[in-house]
Design a protein around this nucleic acid. Structure first.
Lengths: 156, 156
DNA sequence: CCTCTTCGACAAGGTGGTTGTCGAAACCGT
DNA sequence: ACGGTTTCGACAACCACCTTGTCGAAGAGG
């Protein structure tokens, strides 16, 4: 005996996880601001992704795990910011399917590239095997249903 | 070449981190409810910890990174729930220093024990070395100032 | 003593979520 | 073709939580 390192206290784990998450998201929005997307907020990225190709407001709410009213408000903000546009459906006159504009596509592309760059920064610092281990381990200990897209509205 | 496993896309990392965090916090409050603390919410744990011994409302707000009004509301809720009590300061009649009740101490103790048990669950599943690696790696890639106690009010 | 600061409370406002309701439109079984 | 049911999106009301600004009371210091 003697080489047994004292393990950390359990309450550090959630702080470390949240801190790493915050650092990634903060860095993302810093990078997005520099690439011509200054006003975008975390929920917008989720919504932009969830819109897919022509989702309606109600469908967006379902995918985001919020009410259609909340989704409508988010979508309206994204339309105002020029990331989404409402089109008329040729088959259902009740709906106004949402589509990403070129600006929206650019934002999504910039987000993906930035996340890849941030991950690469981790790889440079920790090594590819350690980063892969973190991903595999977190996936293993986390129930699949907690990684859903309804991440935003959490806390509360 | 050939044995190179394709690494994950960068956007998975924040989802995995947040998912793991959510899972831990959800499990904590599940366990707390079973141990006689059903009404406690994430921000309460932070506040209970931050109160220390005799912090005032303003000081609590500073430690939590929120306005003193927000801190006052949280403190009032914890007083109502029986976790905190206001005492009179012998030296400053403006202030009502906050102190944990026995119930508050019990909640904090239960939280610490539960977090240790949840971490042990990770150790059982992944091995002590992998969990320690996650903690060391997350600490390394995260700036210290993002692990502050002002975690609650984030998102937005 | 007078001034500056701090505490805690009040009011007003913003954000972002919820439920409930409603008319219009689509769907579907008969 | 028709009538009942469902779904869409909008409106209103409400709630949770946070913010800034203001204010009187009380302490701190020249």
């Amino acid at each position: 005996m003697g080489a047994m390192a004292t393990s950390r206290s359990g309450h550090e784990l959630p702080l470390l996880l949240l801190g790493a998450f915050r650092a990634l998201v903060d860095d993302l929005h810093l990078a997005l601001a520099e690439r011509g997307h200054p006003g975008v907020r975390p929920v917008h990225g989720f919504a932009l992704q969830a819109v897919g190709d022509g989702a309606t407001t109600s469908e967006l709410g379902r995918r985001l795990g919020v009410s259609k009213q909340a989704a409508a408000k988010t979508a309206a903000a994204l339309v105002t910011l020029g990331y989404l546009e409402e089109r008329a459906s040729p088959t259902d006159r009740r709906t106004r399917p949402l589509h990403r504009t070129a600006h929206g596509d650019d934002c999504l592309r910039a987000s993906a590239e930035t996340f890849d760059q941030l991950r690469q920064r981790w790889v440079d610092q920790l090594g590819a095997d350690r980063v892969a281990a973190i991903e595999d381990d977190l996936e293993a200990v986390t129930r699949a249903d907690t990684r859903r897209a309804d991440a935003p509205g959490w806390f509360g």
